[in-house]
């Protein structure tokens, strides 16, 4: 670590900058490739806290990519906590699933029995272009028991929606169903749809049946059972 320095072409050195060599990338932007051994400039929160050649684990936001790499520190930890941090990073997908479960109003094991498009939404170029899937539930893991549910999922291929799940007839899975976002979902009312609708928007909202034990465990942790 070199204090008061910069490794980025268009970023002059200043007091709160530091050049660090990455000994071990724990979680980084995949677009940057393998950062092992690379120099990165860090804008430090508190420059006085770190000394030259001191090792630390940095949590940082991206800042400049090009002519070098610069990041903004959010926090840092002692390098001796590396194992703990790696374990937490490995748990991020599970934590994300827990967050989605906490936000879900209904979690069901179900089969998709029908998928119908909705009329093209021309109001916005970025409209999700919903399709409506009918679910036949075989088990309700969370929420009010029911036999059927109607869930909306985006069919738009635009970047906003490209990671959202696409449902297909006969698909069997665990579905994390959420309330639709505020706002008018359709340009015109669709009489064939029930009044109660759910959505799946995040790729974690559809889990394979093999994840049932994990989902059950996370739900029980959430409810404190």
């Amino acid at each position: 670590m070199k204090l008061g320095a910069s490794s980025v072409t268009n970023l002059p050195p200043r007091k709160n900058l530091s050049v660090v060599r990455i000994a071990k990338p724990i979680r980084t932007d995949p677009a940057l490739g393998d950062l092992h051994g690379k120099l990165v400039t860090v804008e430090l929160l508190n420059p006085g806290e770190l000394k030259p050649k001191q090792a630390a684990i940095f949590f940082a936001l991206g800042w400049i990519q090009g002519g070098g790499i610069a990041v903004r520190e959010v926090a840092h930890l002692n390098a001796r906590q590396e194992d703990d941090v790696e374990a937490e990073v490995a748990r991020l997908p599970e934590r994300h699933l827990a967050d989605r479960l906490a936000d879900a109003v209904l979690v069901v094991v179900a089969e998709v029995t029908d998928v119908q498009p909705t009329p093209f939404d021309i109001r916005s170029r970025n409209a999700p272009q919903w399709a409506a899937a009918t679910l036949k539930t075989t088990e309700v893991l969370h929420g009010q028991p029911r036999h059927h549910a109607t869930v909306l999922f985006p069919t738009s291929k635009r970047p906003t929606w490209v990671q959202s799940p696409r449902l297909a007839e006969k698909q069997r899975a665990i579905f994390l169903l959420h309330r639709p976002p505020d706002g008018t979902l359709f340009p015109e009312p669709i009489p064939t749809l029930p009044s109660e609708l759910f959505t799946v928007l995040d790729e974690a909202d559809v889990q394979p049946l093999s994840k049932r034990p994990l989902v059950k465990r996370l739900l029980s942790q959430e409810s404190g059972v």
């Binding site: 980025v8 268009n10 090009g66």
Partner: peptide
């Protein structure tokens, strides 16, 4: 990448570029 909004910037009339996240 998700959660970050940035833009490309050039100081040399487009011959080299950097991505700035703000």
């Amino acid at each position: 990448p998700p959660g970050n909004t940035g833009y490309f910037f050039s100081y040399d009339r487009g011959q080299s570029w950097q991505k700035n996240f703000t």
